[in-house]
Design a protein around this nucleic acid. Structure first.
Length: 799
RNA sequence: GCCCAGGUGGCGGAAUUGGUAGACGCGAUAGACUCAAAAUCUAUUGUUGGCAACAACAUGAGAGUUCGAUUCUCUCCCUGGGCACCA
């Protein structure tokens, strides 16, 4: 074999694999299925930087290993191609976003293929393909049919720069997630999806899936389930409902607070003697945007409603009523009973406005000042007190309904028609997809209407119901729509009769392992779980959860630890790395550089390490290949005196250990330590290795460096791909019969070591230990208090 | 403010039922090869003192439990990320 030349090897095998379709997953197989998934990329004009492929490589290692372990592995790829950057780029360069998308996809495809990722390219999908978004629209119509899609005039988050409505999830600290400009509130008719109807199940079913704990936690916090009670308080002739999670503290409720937007205020207007002041406060609160509210640092403000009082239903005492914006109109009932003794915010407010504070719970959780409930444990009395005051136990969530419409061009058209007589009419299924018309100008309008609104030819249609004059909906869907169900389409990407065939869904779903970014935990991951549950309720998918297991990866940062971005000019292009070092080296380095789930800075210097390792493996392969046949087949290990058949290769203990280590490390995504143990093995075995041992070693390396291992594998005379070779098995019962090191400590400090067989007698070992000169020196003339022996590990002599 | 993750050599990082801290890799130093350089190979490489044997110190800081703590407990500091008046 010649010197290791990645340029010759890598392209050759990529073509060969593609030709033989070895990564294409058949829909029928005697093998058990395994569905591994990565978040499909958004094909931007900038192409890949070295950070993008990290998750693809990680899941590729897992997918390759699973294939070798005998699974029918589905590892698909596609494009989440609708979205603002492409649209903005199209506007700027006056091109059709379709053309831009095709160009970008082509570039991404070339880049990803150059890395030797074992994707099944025959199942490639694209969310902007009308054949795909036909089904996105179809699913939307099912939501509409079930009353889960509705139109509502709401105050939406409006980005004045991008000219687009944003979901709550897309507003970061009062600013647009994309462009960073402050978000305004605008009243607008918007399509909404009733995700809140699924809040409880989205929360509860987290217990049934294998997601990393921090992912579950983030989802739980976002859904924000809290159990409490709604209790009526009398204000004059009117009643006001408050929501509380601590009904047990009601005896300490010394005042009541309404949100500035609370509807009761206008009803009791005439009874309030300082109405002018209250009205001023309402107006001031309305003028505040998200950013102001955040900036104000929680400095409490409020106005007392003079002339009215509320009645505490537990004590029967009158309490003052206040209006304050620390109470939110859109959570709970927009009104609270304030218990300053046991709530920080209420206490802050009470202090500022000199309101009474009554303690009702002792530090050890016992009720006081609570009438007939005195002496009971507070938390256990919630239900009793709720019943006593005629309240009702309820569960509330922070999760809001999902704002589903965008006033943009480059998205799926929402498939409904507005008719003056019939109202909102869904586009009949036979007319799907509602295709995006070609337009001259993609620019959004100042008044916030979609560019589609200007195309009268497309907008004006006949009503499907009454055939009268009607207009199309011109809003499009957010880019989260297409990604909410794409993993289902992979199971049957070309189906024109359904989003996927039932049998194929039954076979492939759920996804066995889904790896993705943490930034999608409360967005994409939650949305797709919601869509999946909805489809499950319609009996269209076989499981209630889409993903069995979810893990996440850390980002790759620029050399200086900053985020990699075009604007900072610190982007490292994988094309350069592949050209200089090869795809295998790049793959190895990305897996070796640090823990997979942690962010890490790219290093231009350190990448040479994995390359050197691969070169050593290559040289070793050449040596094995050139060794005489007899030596290649020699059997190196067997019990003493035992006759070992030539073909029965007994795996030596060190290799057995390596198999175990690499197997377990890949399963738990500890790729860095898997590679390090491969390096250790090759360092130890650089002088002498049998062909059998070397081939096992190659197989362990194959998921990381598929091209090079394939080349050597064939050079060694193997005819089929190493990709399909069986994964090496380890014997958990093999124990090394080599001598092991026992460390000798005196008072916890290492003073020497003894080589001994694992089953050596304890007493003999202790005697030997004390006799060691270095040990004897430290225990001389001192009383030995005790000796601790940890089997096979150490002896500690305490003096 | 609350929640989550983390803090170990010059650098990335290893080390879990508590048992040799610094594996593996990068970098650095010296040597071999070479006319020379690169590449490669060999050796050394936590800090301090010492020619050395060796000794002391060392996992963000401080305490505690233990024969023994990077690992467990408590208090605090710092970094990154998330949430942000959710009653």
């Amino acid at each position: 074999m010649k010197a290791y030349d990645h340029k010759k090897i890598e392209l050759k095998w990529q073509k060969e694999w593609e030709k033989n379709k070895i990564y294409n997953a058949p829909d029928k197989s005697p093998k058990p299925k395994y569905y591994s998934l990565i978040e499909f990329p958004y094909p931007s004009g900038d192409g890949l930087h070295v950070g993008h492929p990290r998750p693809y490589i990680g899941m590729d290692v897992i997918s390759r290993k699973k294939r070798m372990e005998g699974y029918n592995v589905l590892y698909p790829i596609g494009w989440d191609a609708f979205g603002l950057p492409t649209e903005n780029y199209a506007i700027k360069t006056k091109q059709d976003p379709r053309v831009v998308t095709i160009k970008n996809v082509k570039n991404f495809t070339r880049q990803i293929k150059s890395l030797g990722i074992s994707f099944d390219w025959s199942r490639e999908i694209n969310t902007t393909d009308p054949k795909y978004y036909k089904w996105t629209q179809w699913i939307f119509l099912q939501f509409l049919k079930k009353g889960l899609a509705y139109k509502d005039k709401i105050a939406i988050n409006w980005c004045p720069v991008d000219k687009i409505g944003l979901a709550n999830e897309e507003v970061v600290a009062g600013c647009c997630e994309r462009c960073g400009s402050p978000v305004e509130k605008r009243e607008k008719e918007q399509w909404m999806l009733r995700i809140t109807k699924y809040a409880d199940r989205l929360d509860k079913d987290l217990d049934t899936v294998d997601f990393l704990p921090h992912i579950k936690l983030a989802q739980k916090n976002w859904i924000g389930k809290s159990e409490g009670a709604e209790i009526d308080f009398k204000i004059g002739k009117n009643m006001v409902k408050v929501f509380t999670t601590r009904p047990d503290t009601i005896y300490g409720a010394t005042y009541l607070v309404l949100a500035p937007e609370h509807e009761l205020l206008s009803k009791i207007k005439s009874e309030v003697t300082n109405w002018n002041e209250v009205q001023m406060y309402q107006l001031a609160a309305k003028a505040k945007n998200e950013l102001d509210r955040t900036k104000e640092d929680k400095d409490k403000t409020g106005v007392e409603l003079e002339g009215v009082t509320a009645t505490n239903p537990a004590t029967g005492e009158p309490i003052p009523v206040w209006v304050a914006d620390y109470v939110l109109a859109n959570y709970g009932t927009g009104a609270i009973m304030a218990v300053p003794a046991h709530d920080e915010r209420d206490l802050e407010f009470a202090k500022k406005f000199n309101l009474p504070v009554v303690e009702v719970v002792t530090p050890d959780g016992i009720l006081i000042n609570s009438g007939r409930f005195d002496g009971l444990k507070a938390l256990e009395t919630k239900q009793k007190i709720t019943d006593f005051v005629g309240g009702e136990s309820v569960t509330r969530f922070k999760l809001r309904d999902w704002v589903f419409s965008r006033q943009r061009y480059w998205g799926e058209p929402i498939p409904v028609i507005h008719c003056a007589d019939c109202g909102i009419v869904p586009v009949p299924e036979k007319d799907l997809p509602v295709e995006l018309p070609k337009v001259k100008n993609y620019e959004p309008t100042e008044d916030g209407e979609s560019p589609l609104a200007n195309i009268s030819k497309w907008v004006n249609v006949k009503c499907p119901k009454c055939a009268g004059k009607a207009t199309r909906e011109t809003d499009t869907m957010p880019n989260w729509a297409g990604s909410s169900w794409y993993y289902l389409r992979y199971t049957d990407p070309k189906n024109s009769k359904a989003f996927a065939d039932k049998k194929k869904l039954d076979y492939w779903t759920p996804v066995d392992w889904y790896n993705g970014g943490n930034e999608h935990t409360t967005l994409h991951l939650l949305y797709s779980r919601f869509w999946h549950k909805f489809l499950y309720d319609l009996k269209l998918v076989p499981t209630s959860e889409p993903y069995k297991k979810r893990t996440s990866h850390g980002f790759i940062l620029a050399q200086n630890g900053e985020k990699m971005s075009k604007s900072r000019g610190n982007v490292i292009n994988p094309d350069d790395i592949v050209a200089r070092f090869g795809a295998d080296t790049m793959r190895m380095y990305e897996m070796f550089m640090g823990p997979f789930d942690q962010a890490i800075a790219w290093s231009e210097e350190a990448i040479i390490g994995p390359r050197r390792f691969l070169e050593r493996v290559w040289v070793m392969g050449a040596r094995v290949n050139e060794a005489p046949q007899a030596q290649q087949n020699r059997v190196r290990v067997g019990a003493p005196g035992e006759r070992v058949k030539r073909r029965d290769f007994a795996v030596p203990a060190t290799l057995n250990k390596l198999i175990k280590k690499v197997t377990e490390d890949i399963d738990s995504m500890k790729f860095n330590t898997a590679i390090s143990s491969l390096m250790i093995f090759s360092n130890e075995k650089s002088d002498s290795i049998s062909k059998e041992e070397y081939e096992i070693f190659l197989k362990l390396l194959a998921p990381f460096a598929p091209h090079m291992t394939e080349e050597i594998w064939h050079a060694l005379g193997n005819k089929s791909s190493i990709t399909l070779a069986p994964w090496p098995k380890y014997d958990p019962n093999i124990v090394s019969n080599e001598e092991i090191k026992i460390v000798i400590q005196v008072n916890g400090k290492v003073r020497g070591e003894i080589l001994a067989l694992p089953d050596v007698a304890e007493e003999a070992l202790k005697a030997q230990a004390m006799a060691l000169p270095a040990v004897a020196k430290h225990i001389q003339g001192l009383e030995i208090k005790k000796m601790i022996y940890v089997k096979g590990r150490l002896i500690n002599i305490v003096i």
